[in-house]
Amino acid sequence: MVLSKNLVVADVTLVERAAMTCKEKCQLVEITQATIDAATLKGIPSNIDLFKELMLPLTMIAKNIERLRRWEEPHLTISFLAFSYLIIFRNLLPYIFPMMLMVLAAVMLTLKGLKDQGRLGRFFGKVTIRDQPPSNTIQKIIALRDAMQDVENYLQNMNVTLLKIRTIFLAGYPQITTEVAMVLFSSAAILLVIPFKYVAACLLFDFFTRELEFRREMAEKFVTFLKERWNTVPAAPVAVLPYESKVSKQGNQQKKIDEETKKKL
């Protein structure tokens, strides 16, 4: 019951309630920041190990799909293909993504309920990695140099790929541009004429039969042909301008202004 602005019966005042709310939010922020500080590791090798550990579920999924693709366990591959084709030809593809979201939400709520009941243990969800062996300053510098070299190589390869795509798109190599455009037109025509479920079925069949004996040689020849054609694509030219400081830029701008002023006079 509210009697006045700052007088409430059977409850705290508005000022006290605001102070309690602010205190709870501050504690939550401090706890969150503490977890972030604890997860922030020093050193590139430790961060790489942590990244590998966090990506382990996706890595396991990729390895299992690769095992299915290579027919290491034929009965599992046949079962997976039968289930996939059932989804495709029963027109259930539009429902796959919503079902995945529903399953994910159900798993999250189940884990929440089990955690509230104390069935998951105290250290559930904790990520554990091995500490790096002790090393001196020289070893740390060498490890840092190798890591930076790997990053530089990755960026260089990525830049070359993007420059080649730019060359193809802007017709820097007309023959390759024509071939890519014809492939895109053909793909668009196929998707317009043939229902998508048949296209998906053919792509799935191609993906799971590349490693089989009757298709392996043909698939290897096709991949080799694509690599050779990709290697023949030149990269777009890159111009590196000389460095200019702010002082020189301002001086050049002032010279341009003076020249324009003299011309007008």
Rank of each mutant, 00 (worst) to 15 (best):
K5E: 11
I96C: 05
L104M: 11
N252K: 15
E228C: 13
S245Y: 01
T232H: 14
R70K: 14
S245P: 02
A201D: 02
L191G: 15
F124G: 04
D49F: 03
K115T: 03
V9M: 15
A181Y: 08
K263P: 11
S248N: 09
K246S: 07
T13S: 08
V160S: 06
L58Q: 03
A188W: 04
I61K: 08
S79I: 06
P45H: 02
I141L: 06
R210K: 08
K42D: 15
P98H: 01
K112M: 11
L86Y: 13
G125N: 04
I44L: 10
G43Q: 01
L111F: 10
I141K: 06
A18C: 13
E16N: 06
L58S: 05
R119K: 12
V15C: 11
E228H: 13
E217C: 10
F51E: 09
L163E: 02
C26A: 12
K262C: 08
W71V: 03
V8F: 07
L109A: 09
D49G: 08
V183D: 09
L14C: 08
M60A: 03
G118T: 02
K262Q: 15
A18T: 10
K42M: 14
N47I: 00
E72K: 13
G43M: 03
L192T: 05
Y85C: 02
P45V: 06
P133G: 00
I36C: 10
K52T: 00
A39E: 14
V183P: 04
